[in-house]
Write a protein that binds this DNA or RNA. Structure first.
Ligand code: ZN
Ligand code: ZN
Ligand code: ZN
Ligand code: ZN
Lengths: 146, 146
DNA sequence: CTTTGACCTGTGAGTTGGTCATAGGTTTTA
DNA sequence: TAAAACCTATGACCAACTCACAGGTCAAAG
């Protein structure tokens, strides 16, 4: 298979195939006649595996490690399980962080409903933003949060 | 104020101050004697404003636009409100996406509890990943989801 | 007076996972 | 035979910083 063929078979951009090849995830053989890369069914399996792993949150270096370990006939499963749990915790941390941002944004929107637009006066840039207090921040100079 | 002073006053990395300066958010004057940048109270206000805006999800180009608009004595408020609503929708989309990932990961973890580790046999790389089906994907070749 | 350490300068690279542009070579089709 | 579609490698680009490097400046301590 040539680049576009394997790319179509896996539903990815041909540049992604070239990128994964450069990164060592795919290992095509080169045709010396025309310098083209030739991918086989094994490469397609690896490519699909890589895409599936990406959907599960694995990074490219991690996927490469899994593939290399499998090439050496070592079971990648324990490492997969371990990485996966760390990744899940990280995803949950990101969700929490984004939900915090969402909460901040909604509280700001609510407060802004009652605030008029202002003209910058050299003392203020935009009161909407400046008068918004980060609920997650510690009081900075003795302020009391009622 | 010199770089480290304004950075400490705003609680950011001095490199961030230099970066924001390069990006046009801060406009220090240069001391011709020693080539040092000199920041004033206005810059500190802009820096704190920029950090607060970042916490609310604004991008650097957006913050620069707000600052430039305020410099021209035009009210940035309508634009702030508009950008903000789009950003909120985007944040909620990201949250949904991450929660989808989390759901996929947890369903995978659950399924993996009953699966033994396997040795790669040239036909399989890692059954944990390969036998996991993306619940959000459409059936690919006539499979029925029970 | 000199040395040391903390600070300053600009530039460029690294992060992540691709995507796109460029310029030139090859194969297939009309 | 010429256009269309494909291939190649390389490098830039995205976001928002962070860090490393090499060299200049300045205050205090010896
Ligand atoms: Zn496995
Ligand atoms: Zn305060
Ligand atoms: Zn405003
Ligand atoms: Zn199928």
């Amino acid at each position: 298979m040539k680049v576009k063929e394997i790319a179509d078979a896996a539903g990815v951009n041909p540049d992604t195939v070239r990128f994964y090849t450069r990164e060592g995830l795919l290992r095509p053989v080169r045709n010396p006649d025309n310098n083209y890369q030739h991918y086989d069914a094994e490469d397609l399996r690896r490519l699909r595996f890589a895409r599936k792993s990406r959907q599960l949150g694995f990074s490219l270096p991690e996927i490469r490690q899994i593939l290399e370990r499998a090439d050496d006939q070592h079971s990648p499963c324990p490492m997969v399980r371990d990485v996966f749990e760390h990744r899940l915790a990280e995803v949950e941390r990101e969700i929490t962080e984004l939900q915090g941002l969402r909460t901040r944004m909604i509280s700001a929107l609510t407060a802004w409903q009652d605030m008029p637009d202002g003209i910058p006066d050299g003392h203020t840039i935009c009161r909407l933003i400046e008068h918004w207090d980060d609920p997650s921040a510690a009081p900075c100079c003795g302020e009391q949060t009622s």
